[in-house]
Design a protein around this nucleic acid. Structure first.
Lengths: 104, 104
DNA sequence: TTAACATCTGCATATATGTTCAAATGTTGT
DNA sequence: ACAACATTTGAACATATATGCAGATGTTAA
């Protein structure tokens, strides 16, 4: 029997989801945000202050990450704390960071 | 001594590189292309035919991936064969695919 | 050198995306 | 209820990105 290339290709629907997942890590600001949230819980203002990005921009990114279910949020008083708690996501992200840092 | 959040944040330069790496996997067409090239060598025409994407579009993507050093190319006659041969990249990609496929 | 085929390239363009701004919403303490 | 603070939201805008098209380049066989 013969091996068909089409059997190797991800169907478009799955591929779109994979692309969407990786898109979460494809922006400099989001990478910086996630580099914190994979290690410790943090609120919007704290992130904005430490990353030098506006609170609004941070919030937009977090909304996106929340809709993708990549971060969890918890309100404590006026503040909302975010974190990444999925070990697979953390591992995936860290692997990308490691690969970049190994290249020098 | 106290733990500063700034110590957790990836510097902008590194973050930009990480984002760039993940951007390679952040487009549906590229994901489909890579889903083949992580498993077997393939040429431009073959990819175009099996993915239903124009040869020009495929070539544009491959140029990008080549510049990122994520794929290797080898010319055999008129055809140019591409593949992904870095085990870390393959693992990273596969991990993303696995995560999506586990979610159903 | 031609012809035929495969791939690549630059440009144009439509769409997607990140950020800012201003205003809205939510929360706490007075 | 009000003021003060934190976060969210939607609209507008500027930039980035994917793709098609037309032509250029590379390769082989005659």
């Amino acid at each position: 029997m013969k091996m068909d290339i089409k059997d190797l290709v991800l169907d478009e629907h799955t591929a779109a989801h994979v692309a969407e997942l990786f898109r979460a890590f494809s922006d400099t600001s989001r990478v910086q945000i996630l580099s914190v949230l994979v290690q410790s819980e943090q609120n919007v203002g704290g992130l904005a202050q430490n990353l030098g990005i506006s609170e609004s921009a941070i919030s937009h990114h977090l909304r996106w990450l929340r809709q993708m279910r990549l971060v969890k949020s918890r309100r404590q008083g006026k503040e909302v704390y975010y974190l990444v708690d999925d070990p697979h996501i953390i591992a995936l992200f860290q692997q990308g960071v490691d690969h970049v840092q190994k290249e020098r």
